[in-house]
Design a protein around this nucleic acid. Structure first.
Length: 450
RNA sequence: GACCCUAUCGUCUAGCGGUUAGGACACUGCCCUUUCACGGCAGCGGCCCGGGUUCGAGUCCCGGUAGGGUCGCCA
């Protein structure tokens, strides 16, 4: 029998990075084994769960490329789904839960207590055979010792998580439950419930948690906890996927950069690590840079134009050839697209603001005549291209008896406003003589002779 | 309070009784270079502690310690 796995998030309005990795591991296992990846929405709290919140989940998974074989097609709980084991929204499964409760009640495995319904939990320790952690013998805690039974239906008639989760997994034919280690202790309850329904529980694989850099639990407010952050901050999904794969799983051969296709090939549950991992933003950023550098041109342009637009820069006002040439000089230099407006925005703005610290160094009186001489030399440069400009600048420096760097820095600052950026000669060519002349001219006005 | 899981450079990890404990990110230095990146080279830096078992332990066992998780009419 082919494995059937599921990702069952609650639509809270954001997708936790740890949840994203749980989804990823489930997806990887399904793809590796040729099994089925089911998406189920645990929207039991009708008041809090909105379609927007469901969309956050659907969009997040789609962005990561984790397409599900069964589950919702839209965020509408009553809308279309694919798969024949639905409904895939818990809010639409009330009758299923009702029937299961009655089954337990009628067999004396559950009972009413103060308006709620409680499940008769066994007192003996339960063995949890876990594919990642190994065999775990879960004993009762002192509180459970006092009262091992637990509520499965609240007094308001709402069935609780432990119950609906088990009922759904059972009815949807889930064979492997791959989830965060925070559920390990509770698995005893789930196993007991499965047995009460007369079936053997699925196989369990509890994966380690993702912690903050300081080792504390990553919660909603922590930086980087929400997947949306990476979407918004111009990350590439392949970088995020790759990084997430490396958290708690390893290809074992020192490979760091792998495509999802490669991971699908090599992924399996027994190799998953047992200890929690701290989230290392720097390493993610490195991977992001790796993927960004080798992005196909068209996709790179698209991401750039989008990032610039978000920063209020309309590239449509410029020639397509100009835009492409400008962006070409930025490729391989930026890591995230949110850096782009600051890095290459000067190409598209009417004027630039000078970096204050750099201006203090470069726009000094002694540089004024130098810059004037260089401007005159540039004015005569023909053709106005990278090779000529480099030769002209070096010749000018030579005549002035200074190193090229003495001219390079002020010119860069004058034209781009930044102390660093794309290759100077290339960017000058892209911008063209007219703009370059104008910007150097304006910079000269700001330099005061004492 | 009880129960469960975990423990190799700062971080992610390789290791599965005998290794100069390997790689990657980060950091430092050098090279390349018009800046910044990229790339190349070098360096820094680790087996939580204590007992066992064994000729031999990062690796196996026990105990501490530390971190994380759970014990809800939250999910």
């Amino acid at each position: 029998m082919k494995p059937r796995v599921r990702f069952a998030p609650s639509p809270t309005g954001y997708l936790h990075i740890g949840g994203a990795r749980t989804a990823l591991f489930n997806w990887l296992y399904a793809r590796h084994t040729g099994g089925t990846f089911v998406l189920r929405i645990e929207d039991t709290d009708a008041a809090r769960n909105t379609q927007e919140a469901v969309d956050v989940i659907l969009n997040g998974l789609r962005w990561l490329g984790l397409h599900w074989d069964e589950g919702p097609l839209t965020a509408d709980a009553t809308g279309p789904c694919k798969g024949d084991r639905g409904p895939y929204f818990q809010s639409q499964r009330k009758t299923n839960y009702q029937a299961r409760v009655e089954a337990l009640l009628s067999r004396g495995l559950a009972y009413e207590h103060e308006g709620a319904i409680k499940f008769k939990m066994q007192r003996e320790p339960i063995l949890i055979p876990d594919l990642v952690v190994g065999d775990v013998l879960r004993k009762l805690t002192d509180r459970e010792e006092a009262d091992p039974d637990f509520v499965i239906v609240r007094s308001d008639g709402q069935p609780v998580f432990h119950f609906v989760n088990v009922v759904d997994d059972l009815e949807m034919g889930i064979t492997h439950v791959i989830r965060g280690e925070d559920h390990l202790s509770n698995t005893a309850k789930h196993i007991a419930l499965f047995r009460a329904f007369g079936v053997e529980p699925p196989r369990y694989a509890h994966i380690p948690l993702i912690l903050n850099a300081d080792g504390s639990k990553m919660s909603k407010r922590d930086r980087g906890a929400s997947l949306t952050t990476y979407l918004d901050e111009g990350f590439l999904p392949e970088a995020v996927d790759n990084y997430l794969c490396l958290l708690g799983w390893s290809p074992k051969d020192n490979t760091e950069k792998l495509s999802l296709t490669e991971v699908v090939e090599r992924f399996d549950l027994p190799q998953i690590l047992r200890h929690n991992a701290k989230f290392d933003f720097e390493k993610l950023l490195w991977l992001q840079g790796e993927y960004c550098r080798e992005l196909p041109d068209d996709r790179f342009y698209e991401m750039c134009v989008h990032a610039l637009a978000k920063a209020g820069i309309d590239t449509n006002k410029h020639d397509v050839a100009y835009v492409k040439a400008a962006l070409d000089t930025c490729k391989g230099k930026i890591k995230t697209f949110t850096e782009l407006p600051a890095y290459g925005g000067f190409y598209f703005r009417d004027s630039v603001e000078y970096d204050a610290e750099a201006a203090k160094k470069s726009f000094v009186p002694e540089n004024k005549p130098r810059l004037e001489k260089l401007r005159a030399a540039f004015a005569a440069a023909d053709p106005f291209n990278t090779a000529t400009l480099e030769a002209v600048l070096k010749a000018t420096a030579n005549e002035l008896g200074v190193k090229a760097g003495v001219l390079v820095h002020p010119v860069r600052l004058a034209v781009t406003g930044n102390p660093s950026g794309p290759s100077l000669y290339h960017l000058l060519e892209v911008m063209g003589k007219e703009k370059v002349m104008g910007r150097i001219g304006r910079a000269l006005e700001t330099i005061k002779i004492v």
